[in-house]
Write a protein that binds this DNA or RNA. Structure first.
Lengths: 233, 233
DNA sequence: ACCTGAACACCGTTCAAGT
DNA sequence: ACCTGAACACCGTTCAAGT
């Protein structure tokens, strides 16, 4: 049942290991479980040793976000053909970000809510290299500057809403199942009954289906359509 | 300049005052400043006294979210005419939620990221009464059950992405100005220069404009158009 | 009935001291 | 060079005790 290996003790400690172990810890036990002291223990070292490699807790959280979102860089600097390839490009980047949300659902709220370094970096595309590639690709695909910026804004807004809802929903789903598994009878907070909300009660089966993946693809298609209308107008 | 009145000391303490003071405290000093001990001090009481009125810190956070999102209830139970009024209704609810984000930017990330009570409650519409009214209004406006659920999903996703980005962006903006005001020379993290990102540098003026309000209205219009296409298809 | 003091386990962070 | 022990200020929470 382990988790959190405590292999190293001396010398082999470095910043990457600290951040990587922190990500593991958050993935295994949630954000609230991440303290400097527990992280130290997970690595096999006292908490104070970590201060050689990260500049305190805030810096650690920042580093986690940076590390986790790094995979988008590879997607964002993809080369596209000269004509129309921007749609494939946006698809590619969108799916790279979605993969981050799936792989690190516990970290994604951090990606979503931490203030970016610059006021015009918009989560979840909060990395200068990524945004540079993004804007360069669109402008060189024929977007005007205004259009590229508009697309950037619409795209980030789409990703943030869609993916944050996905991870939140799946988290709640898992939590609910856990309660039920532990013998949590039939209902949750028995004081307010669902019977007071007949429409919800009636639609509950439909509301309970997790359509996150299809929703994402459909909303992405619609977004691309809207951007296309803007560009070819 | 003050904030955090310490008027009451005995008897006049109750749950509403605790929650209201907590919201004030978060508004004035940020989420990180909210501890049971500091909240107690702000009220004029020891932290332990709060446990009579809230069931610990998590319950307090939950209560803050509930209190702040309560205003949406009034908007959501609005009556609409029998034909086509659903568009005005969605406009009305959307603006009620946006007002929450504007009035409580420091609380909104909590609204956005805390797991709702049920897995099919989607932030920022995370209240049974609101969702009941929402779904009832749409179905009685002629939406099928599938369409009402689809609209609920698209609507929440739109609100979440749009508003979370607005508050994040404005927060970053304010933080940046503060740094500049305090004599923070010209650039932020001098190690990576913006000169390495020519497209960003070129688009910076356009990227720096806060178009949140217009964006919100435009994206809302587009959403209503898409929903209309779905319904009358 | 309502609040406090004392206590416990935990936290982030610093710094001198150890190896 | 790298890590630890001790220390400090702070935290959430419990519970017996005060009024």
């Amino acid at each position: 049942m382990g988790g959190t290996a405590d292999t190293p003790r001396r010398g082999n400690l470095d910043r990457d290991l600290v951040v990587a172990t922190a990500i593991e810890l958050v993935g295994a036990e949630g954000l609230n479980a991440l303290s400097m002291r527990r992280l130290g223990a997970a690595i096999g070292v006292e908490a104070m040793a970590l201060y050689r490699y990260v500049d305190g807790r805030e810096d650690l959280l920042e580093s986690i976000v940076e590390e986790v979102t790094k995979k988008v860089e590879r997607a964002a600097d993809m080369d596209i053909g000269p004509h129309g390839g921007w749609q494939a490009y946006l698809q590619h980047v969108a799916h790279a970000v979605r993969d981050i949300a799936s792989d690190h659902p516990q970290v994604f709220p951090l990606v979503a809510t931490r203030h970016p370094a610059a006021p015009w970096l918009r989560p979840p595309l909060r990395n200068l290299a990524v945004v540079e590639d993004f804007l360069r690709t669109l402008t060189s695909a024929g977007f005007s500057e205004e259009q590229a910026v508009t697309a950037y804004r619409a795209f980030t807004s789409f990703l943030l809403g869609q993916l944050l809802l996905t991870v939140t929903q799946r988290g709640a789903q898992a939590a609910t199942e856990e309660v039920l598994d532990e013998g949590g009878a039939t209902v949750a907070h028995s004081d307010i009954s669902i019977d007071d909300f007949p429409t919800i009660a009636r639609l509950q089966p439909k509301l309970s289906i997790d359509r996150s993946d299809e929703e994402f693809e459909e909303a992405l298609e619609q977004l691309l359509t809207r951007i296309d209308a803007m560009v070819s107008q």
